[in-house]
Design a protein around this nucleic acid. Structure first.
Lengths: 206, 206
DNA sequence: ACCTGAACACCGTTCAAGT
DNA sequence: ACCTGAACACCGTTCAAGT
């Protein structure tokens, strides 16, 4: 087996992991499946990654990569909102992306650069370092909590039947209103909580 | 084997599951371990619960039981704060409690009564039904996001070495400040984000 | 340096058969 | 009604040995 001439890299492993995530979900992202997809024996993966947890950390980092590209320059609240919406979009762009990133953050695997970006916007706005870090962590928690819920709910419904191609959910509009989601689209629901939080922050700025 | 004379009930299964959760954590809460703890073969559990997911839903319900006992009567923001703090405390009272409840909520297993309680406080305060539900969901997401992170972090640190007895973490003060948590105690960090959100809500009340 | 082969110690779930 | 016995189709991780 294994007609390839060149050796595997850690990047190959992470990329293949994301491909499996997109097509089959986190529950089917196993080291053995991953090895099969790469045409290699399971044990071979452990030459490239320390263990599954570290791999998922690297996957989380990749999901969050380039979150601050071409950021608009404007008022802090506009930029803060933009960042939060981008974060949610990045998580939704991969199946179970929110769960992967939430776990990686809780276990302090992954780089955790998102927190730095959010904090920077708030210190620029005039918040103290401590307030900025606390507020950044709070929205991060809100976004993760919301998106894990949103994505988990979509999964438990039957909508994911026809396995989408990688990145297919990126930038699509909210799906049709369902019976147990009779209020608004998910983006609007997300935006509501976010704007309440930003309102509270604005009130604290002298 | 199995000297017991009386049969198992679903409650017995859920209670034993929580005991394992408290002592060994979610990673060690397996159907096989649970069966061994109950002095029974693995297959026997499937007479009492449909599957592991349903069991975890029932565990989540138990964790959240009695969340609104003896609620204080006072201003809405006081009661809202109380409920959010109680929710966090209930999650922290069991090892991996936040993760279990977050998963149960995302998959719509479990009863999800917490949302009703939070919504009620806000409709009483004068919010419209839609605003109240959206805001309730938003804080729930914040609390889950925060507490999953808080609990996961504690786990990844070495603090959980001496397996605590069930409920031992209930109502304890924050642990000592560690190197990567130099700002405040966790309760204060949680309270900061919560009060920002409540400030934002108050501003919306005419 | 990179991977195979093979093992170790596990999983959740099903289901005929027993009592 | 409640449980056993036994199987099915899997897991993550380790590690000597090969090339």
């Amino acid at each position: 087996m294994r007609a390839q001439t060149v050796a595997l890299t850690s990047k190959d492993v992470v990329d293949a992991a994301i491909a499996i995530l997109d097509e089959y979900g986190l529950g089917d992202l196993t080291m053995r499946r991953l090895a099969t997809a790469l045409g290699v024996q399971p044990g071979a993966l452990y030459w490239h990654v320390a263990n599954k947890q570290a791999l998922l950390g690297a996957v989380a980092d990749t999901i969050l990569d380039g979150l601050d590209d071409d950021m608009p320059s404007g008022d802090w609240d506009l930029r803060f909102n933009e960042l939060a919406h981008r974060l949610r979009a990045a998580l939704l762009a991969h199946r179970d992306g929110a769960e992967v990133v939430a776990a990686a953050h809780a276990l302090r695997t992954g780089r955790g650069s998102t927190l730095v970006l959010l904090t920077q916007v708030l210190t620029d706005a005039g918040f103290t370092e401590v307030e900025a870090e606390l507020a950044a962590l709070a929205v991060l928690h809100y976004v993760l909590g919301h998106t894990v819920d949103e994505q988990g709910h979509a999964q438990s419904a039957g909508l994911v039947a026809g396995a989408a191609s990688p990145g297919a959910t990126e930038g699509i509009a909210d799906g049709p209103q369902t019976v147990d989601d009779p209020l608004l689209g998910e983006t609007a629901r997300f935006g509501f909580g976010l704007s309440v939080f930003v309102d509270g922050l604005r009130a604290r700025l002298t």
